[in-house]
Structures are given as C-alpha cells and as structure tokens.
C-alpha cells in the first residue's frame, strides 16, 4: 500500500536554511546539507527546498547546495523558488533535484508547465499554489497569490489547480496562506477541495503545529503528503515522533 509522505521543507536563503511566520521575520535554522542529512537519517520521505534568494548569485549557491545534498541523501528532492525558465529547471535537475516546483512563474506563464512536463516528464513538475480564503463571499473559495504571497492574482485556487494538472503538473504543493506560520492546523477544507478536484497527488502545506494537524491534513484534507517546516526544525517533534503518532492512528507510513 502506498504510504503517506512526511516532507520537511527547508527555505534556503543565500545557502542557509531560514523559515518565518507567514513569510516574514525570517530566523536562521541551519546548514541545508547538515539538515537534509539529519532528516534523511531520521526517516523523512522526501525533502522540499524553497530558494527564497531572488538573485542570480543566490541561484548559483542553490545549485551547489543541491549538488552536495544529492551526494549524501538518497531520497526525492524537490527544488523551487525563482525558477522561471526551462534552463533554470534543467540546471537544478542536473544538479540532482528530482522535481521542480514552480509557483509565480506558472501563473504568469502557464505554458511553462506544459513545456517543463514535455521536456522532463510530468513527474518532475510540481505546481505550488499559495491560496487565501476569500472573505465575505457566500460560497467558500480561495484566491491564488503570487510573489511569495505578496500579490493577489485573479485566479480561483480550485480552477487553477485543475488547469495546472491539465497542462501537465504531476503534483500540487498547496499552501494555505491563512494557516501558514500560525501552527494551528492546515486548512483542510482547501486541501480536500483541491485533492478531490484533481487526479494527481497533493502535498498539504502551512499550519502544522502538532502531530494531530498532520493527521487531519491526511484524513480530513485527503492529502497524499504533508509538508512542514518549523515543527521539525526546532526539534519539538522528530520525524520519528510524528511517524509513530500517525502509525498509531492507522495511517500507512514508511518505517
């Protein structure tokens, strides 16, 4: 039986791991290679790196980081952040990344999804969606944001998810902007709405504070994988703690 994946996320800036509350107030949490190795040894199922450096020098640093990690860590690696061109994707894949996550670039140029999928295969293309609840609407819906959550787009999250998959996305990385950084649980209405709308795996992200939150994202949110950052980084819970907890609650987990 396919197991549910537990995915630590490392936000990397200038070669260092940082993670903040609701995308601001970043705090240093370590060396990416050392952290990646620790997660690998602890039994993480996959790793996601978001490069939040927006400069070309930062990009070069990230390529080197991915190269070093892929020599030590034998599990799937997803890299995202500022990758706007096929050549950017190719560089990361050649460095040892398995999947490329695109967010703003996909919204601005949806053709990039198709181009990437044709070139490298759908399994390589993760479309990351940052969504925020639309307030004051009679019907529950979510709006897509770009530029690290700074800019609202005119896209509806569910419609955009369907379009991204139709264009060739092999997986969706869904972040609730309302929940992200607050550590009070994922937005499982969002997770469920998207997971039921598409036929590809969905990674739920944003809001994990306690192991129960991950359980709910997998069960109520029907996510195929859960992504979390700070819950792991500050050693409040180890991967093993969380996996044991989920296993006790009947979730299929890799041990």
């Amino acid at each position: 039986m396919l197991t549910k994946r537990i995915i630590p996320c490392l936000d990397v800036k200038d070669g260092r791991v940082v993670k903040g509350k609701s995308f601001i107030n970043l705090r240093d949490a370590g060396d990416p290679v050392a952290l990646a190795k620790t997660y690998y040894e602890e039994g993480a199922d996959e790793l996601v790196f978001l490069d939040i450096t927006a400069t070309p020098e930062g990009r070069d640093t990230m390529v080197g980081v991915v190269e070093r990690i892929s020599q030590e860590v034998f599990m799937p690696l997803t890299v995202g952040g500022g990758l706007r061109k096929i050549d950017d994707m190719r560089r990361m894949l050649l460095a040892g990344a398995d999947k490329i996550s695109i967010n703003t670039a996909a919204v601005l140029n949806p053709g990039l999804i198709r181009e990437g999928a044709d070139r490298f295969g759908s399994q390589c293309i993760v479309v990351a969606i940052d969504a925020r609840r639309v307030k004051g609407d009679s019907q529950l819906r979510w709006q897509v944001y770009t530029h690290s959550g700074q800019k609202p787009s005119d896209l509806d999250a569910i419609e955009w998810a369907k379009e991204a998959v139709a264009l060739g996305a092999g997986e969706l990385l869904l972040t609730s902007m309302d929940a992200d950084g607050h550590r009070a649980g994922y937005d499982n209405e969002l997770n469920r709405a998207i997971s039921e709308a598409v036929g590809v795996p969905v990674i739920a992200s944003g809001g994990a504070g306690i192991p129960e939150d991950l359980y709910q994202a997998l069960v109520s949110g029907r996510a195929d994988a859960v992504l979390a950052a700070s819950i792991f980084h500050y050693e409040e819970y180890s991967i093993d703690n969380i996996k044991s907890y989920l296993e006790r609650r009947g979730i299929p987990i890799r041990r």
Binding site: L2, K4, E171, D224, A225
Partner: peptide, 11 residues
C-alpha cells in the same frame, strides 16, 4: 484512472 496518477511515493 480511478487512482492518483502518477503512483508517487514509498510503497
């Protein structure tokens, strides 16, 4: 087609 495709993850 009734399954999530790709089959992605640890099995």
């Amino acid at each position: 087609d009734n399954l999530k495709i790709p089959h992605m993850g640890w099995n």
